[in-house]
Simulated assay, not measured.
Amino acid sequence: MAESYSLRSRQVDQMAGDGHEANGSPFRPTRARGSASTRRNSPYLPTPLESLALLIYPVLLVFGSLFSVLSPETRASPYDVTGHSHVQTGNAVPSYFARKDNLLNIIFVKRGWAWITVAFVAFAASHSTFRSSGTRLARAASRWALITGWWILVTQWCFGPAIIDRGFRFTGGKCEDAHEAVFEGTADKSDVFTAAACKASGGRWSGGHDISGHVFLLVLGSYFLVQEVGWVLLRSGAGVAGRGEERAVVMGDGAVKGAGVEAEGDGGAGDGSALGVGSKFTLTIVGLCWWMLLMTAIYFHTWFEKLTGLLVAFLGVYAVYILPRWIPALRGLIGMPGM
Rank of each mutant, 00 (worst) to 15 (best):
S6D: 14
S9C: 04
Q11H: 11
Q14N: 11
N23E: 11
N23A: 06
P26N: 08
P29I: 12
P29D: 12
P29K: 15
P29L: 11
A32F: 10
A32T: 14
S35M: 13
A36R: 07
R39K: 09
P43I: 05
P48F: 03
E50K: 02
L52Y: 02
V62E: 01
T74M: 03
P78A: 08
P78W: 01
P78C: 02
P78M: 05
V81E: 14
G83L: 14
G83H: 05
H84M: 14
Y96W: 11
Y96F: 15
F97L: 08
N102S: 03
V109Y: 05
G112H: 10
G112S: 12
W113M: 09
A114M: 08
V121K: 00
A122Q: 06
S142R: 15
R143Q: 12
R143C: 11
A145R: 06
W150K: 00
Q156C: 13
Q156S: 14
Q156K: 14
G160I: 05
R166M: 10
K174C: 03
C175I: 13
A178P: 13
E180R: 08
E180K: 04
F183N: 04
T194I: 05
T194C: 09
A196K: 15
G203C: 09
H209C: 14
I211T: 07
V215Q: 01
L220R: 10
S222T: 08
Y223F: 12
F224G: 06
E228D: 12
G230L: 00
V232G: 06
V232H: 05
L234M: 14
L234A: 13
S236V: 10
G237I: 03
A238G: 12
R243H: 09
G244M: 06
E245C: 01
V250M: 09
G254R: 02
G260S: 14
E264R: 15
S279P: 01
S279Y: 00
L283T: 10
T284D: 04
T284E: 06
V286W: 03
G287I: 05
L288F: 12
A297M: 01
T302Y: 08
T302Q: 11
E305D: 08
Y318S: 04
Y318H: 11
V320L: 07
I322S: 02
L323H: 04
R325C: 08
A329D: 08
R331I: 06
G332W: 00
G335F: 10
